[in-house]
Amino acid sequence: MRGFSAIYGREMRAYFTSPTAYVVSVVFLLAVGLFFMTLLRNYISFDAYWRERLLEAGREAVPADVHQYLLRRFISTLGAITLFVLPFITMGSFAEEYRSGTMELLLTSPIGQRSIVLGKFAAASTVFTLLLLISLGLVSSLFLYGNPDPTSLLVGFVGVWLQGESFLVIGMFISSLTRSQVVAGIGGLGAALLLWLAGLLGDPTSTLGIWLNELSLVAHFEDFSKGILDSKHVVFYVCFIFFWLFLTLRSLESLKYR
């Protein structure tokens, strides 16, 4: 792992000295804020309706379940936002190095290619994790006004995190195939979308359809958003991430022969 910390440090510095990371962060947080506000507003009017119905039925007016009617929806939405934003964090990771010729510097230096891939992944992952923590802070404002279940909320965020890391590795892989950041960004988004919704490709009653559904990212996300932590899904995401990191490494090695 020689060179890992140097690569990681340079990537982090690049994220915070170039406008890309800021633009992506602003767009991400804007989307998170807007959707949270809208969902919260919906919840409030639903809650009023809910209490009214309960009173009409002559029962005690308890508030509507926050997790069920607000957080679950928010977490699903957050997962979708990451899909559209994260490819733009990773689009430059290799494409830009190819274009500027700095890949030649990295590959003629005595560092492992594994450090290059992992250093870049760790940096992209750090940026994403920071964004997610900010979003979590925003949602935690709910604790000021009520008492949602913190465990379910955290499990949901773990799901978003794992799924987001998967989007990052797909994006990195696509970026390792091209010199153009635009191609890497849009292509990464397309690839992530495809793997996210792979289940839609097949008839859900056929064997192929079941397989495709099992392989799609969103199928493993459902339980997290419900607040259920199932190791099966965690293992799936971890394997998925390692698989694409491995492919990225291979793609980098194949560069020699291109």
């Binding site: 340079r10 510095r13 690049a14 000295t17 170039s18 010729g101 700095t102 890949m103 030649e104 510097l105």
Partner: peptide, 11 residues
């Protein structure tokens, strides 16, 4: 030294 100097232009 490759044909074009391998610089990170933001550094």
């Amino acid at each position: 030294l490759p044909e074009s100097p391998p610089l990170y232009l933001e550094m």
